[in-house]
């Protein structure tokens, strides 16, 4: 039977680097998938993933096993991505402008807010997926992170809060707003297509 992540961490801490190699192989696909969705330049993805694993190795003695190793690792990946973004801060990014975030997040629960405008019939079409992909890449990084962790990594609100080091209500708000922005962006894109057609 394959050793669990905790056992591999224990072996690594005893000085067995190969055990960490197994951990890398086990999590590298998920880390690359996450970084690819957070970093806009595909050329940077491998660098960031590599950096994140090296940071994780250095921080391994602080891993207490309270959370799953994957969740703990994602937090390091997230921080590595943020650091990389700061390094590239001078590069102008075409991010969607977002209103200042409200601290009071009560009453917002995912997509379920009654105030949310309901989707237009246009959002039902299958070809909407391509448009969504394009809009996703233009979303601010926090929103992309929440969407990726929820829809791709299937992390719960609680786990996402742990990874991104933010309150759970903020995560719900980010998810809600990310969807609202995607809908708006899609609408804008469709209007522009109709205009230019």
């Amino acid at each position: 039977m394959a050793a669990g992540d905790s056992e591999l961490v224990r072996q690594t801490l005893k000085g067995d680097k190969r055990a960490f190699g197994v951990l890398i192989q086990r999590h590298q696909d998920a880390v690359f998938a996450l970084v690819s969705r957070l970093i806009r330049n595909p050329g940077d993805v491998q660098d960031v993933a590599q950096d994140a694993f090296i940071r994780a190795y250095r921080a391994l003695p602080t891993f207490r096993g309270d959370a799953q190793f994957g969740t703990w690792l994602y937090r390091i990946v997230w921080n590595t991505c943020l650091d990389r973004r700061e390094q590239h801060a001078r590069v102008q990014e075409r991010e969607v402008q977002i209103a200042p975030e409200e601290e009071d997040c009560n009453g917002i629960d995912g997509f379920a807010d009654e105030e949310t405008p309901l989707p237009d019939a246009a959002f039902e079409a299958d070809d909407v997926r391509q448009g969504l992909e394009a809009c996703l890449s233009r979303l601010p990084v926090h929103y992309r992170a929440v969407l990726t962790l929820y829809y791709f990594e299937q992390k719960s609100y609680e786990e996402i809060a742990m990874v991104l080091d933010q309150p759970m209500n903020t995560i719900k708000v980010h998810l809600f707003r990310a969807k609202s922005h995607l809908k708006k962006a899609l609408l804008a894109e469709r209007s522009s297509e109709e205009w230019t057609a």
Binding site: K17, R18, F20, G21, I24, Q25, Q28, D29, V31, F32, A33, V35, S36, R37, P42, V45, Q46, A49, Q50, F53, I54, Y57, F111, L118, P119, D120, A121, F123, E124, D126, V128, R129, L132, E133, L136, S137, L147, T148, Y151, F152, K179, L182, K183
Partner: peptide, 30 residues
Amino acid sequence: AVARFEHNLAAAVREFPAVTPPADFADMVL
């Protein structure tokens, strides 16, 4: 309609083009 949008959104997030790790990635890190 909401369910359809959710379905499309989840699919778009999953199918978002991602870089795949090279075969020797673990060795490079080690």
